[in-house]
């Protein structure tokens, strides 16, 4: 198994590291390793959501394009986490852009085949969807905290 093989990357990634060999090779069959240069898009708002991205290394910005202002980064995602969950609710399109800020390596898993796998192996499906839900919850929590503008200027009492 070579260093840059999907199976090796899956074995090293926290999202999938504890799966058994059979499950890993099953996942590896529907995954490829992709490298994104700075400013290259992993996925773009409006495109069909067909893949799941496990970020191996680098830094990815989740952003939205605001006319007149350009790309507005909302949150960044580092290696060890994941990007994109719209594929699970197929058919659907990406809601935001994801752009590499640094040279980024990602495991790209085919959404359609992943869904089929989850139907065949519900136990694996539930486990991975739970993990994805954890990431979704973390990102929602972070977004809520960002909304609070914690470090903003204190408001004086009236």
């Amino acid at each position: 198994m070579n260093e840059s093989s999907p199976e090796h990357a899956l074995r090293m990634h926290p999202f999938t590291a504890d799966l058994n060999d059979e499950q890993l090779s099953e996942l590896a069959r529907l995954a490829r390793v992709a490298v994104y240069e700075p400013n290259e898009y992993l996925l773009r708002e409006g495109d069909p959501a067909t893949a799941f991205y496990l970020i191996v290394s680098g830094l990815v910005s989740i952003e939205v394009f605001v006319p007149g202002h350009g790309a507005r980064p909302l949150q960044t995602v580092e290696g060890g986490s994941a990007v994109g969950w719209s594929w699970i609710l197929a058919p659907s399109r990406w809601e935001f852009d994801a752009r590499a800020l640094e040279r980024t390596t990602a495991l790209v898993l085919d959404g359609e085949r992943l869904r089929q796998l989850f139907v065949r192996d519900c136990c694996l499906g539930l486990r991975l969807v739970q993990r994805l839900l954890f990431i979704v919850a973390e990102r929602l929590k972070a977004a809520r905290l960002q909304l609070l503008d914690l470090y903003g200027p204190p408001r004086e009492l009236p």
């Binding site: 830094l59 910005s61 350009g70 980064p73 909302l74 949150q75 960044t76 580092e78 800020l101 640094e102 973390e138 972070a142 905290l145 960002q146 914690l150």
Partner: peptide
């Protein structure tokens, strides 16, 4: 526009 670092809250 110039920021190339992380975006998000510190507990993350």
């Amino acid at each position: 526009e110039r920021w190339r670092g992380q975006v998000g809250v510190v507990p993350q």
